[in-house]
């Protein structure tokens, strides 16, 4: 029992994936944050009333365009999308890792989690 050498390797891969995802998204958010603070730092805070963020801050195609024009909040939002994608990528990497170990039970379990995730992201 205990963890086999394949498991140890998978643990390293997943750990590195999570660290990369977190660092990358953190850097993108930091960059956007600095730009945002420089541009809007002296403006008053306006979160007391809910307006709903406009679509340019969440739809993928709309986010990617303003990034090229260096809109600070779109850069932050791109970083947030990278952050949200990290745990999903983790499930995909686990699935592949379990397949390398020929642990078909856990390939099926990982696939199940992915399917439910896809349903909750795209159907609901």
């Amino acid at each position: 029992m205990a963890t086999s050498s394949g498991d140890k390797r998978l643990e390293r891969v997943i750990s590195n994936l999570l660290r990369t995802g977190v660092l990358l998204s953190g850097l993108v958010v930091l960059l956007g944050g600095i730009l945002y603070m420089v541009r809007y730092g002296n403006n008053p805070v306006a979160y007391a009333q809910f307006h709903g963020e406009p679509e340019i801050y969440w739809s993928l195609s709309a986010i990617l365009k303003p990034v090229s024009e260096l809109k600070s909040r779109s850069i932050i939002q791109l970083g947030l999308l990278l952050l949200i994608a990290t745990p999903v990528a983790r499930v995909v990497f686990c699935l592949v890792g379990f397949a390398f170990e020929r642990d078909w039970t856990y390939v099926a379990i990982s696939a199940g989690v992915l399917i439910v995730l896809a349903i909750s992201l795209f159907v609901l």
């Binding site: 709903g52 909040r73 932050i76 939002q77």
Partner: peptide, 8 residues
């Protein structure tokens, strides 16, 4: 529209 970039 719950996620505000400046706050997040």
């Amino acid at each position: 529209g719950y996620i505000a970039p400046g706050l997040a």
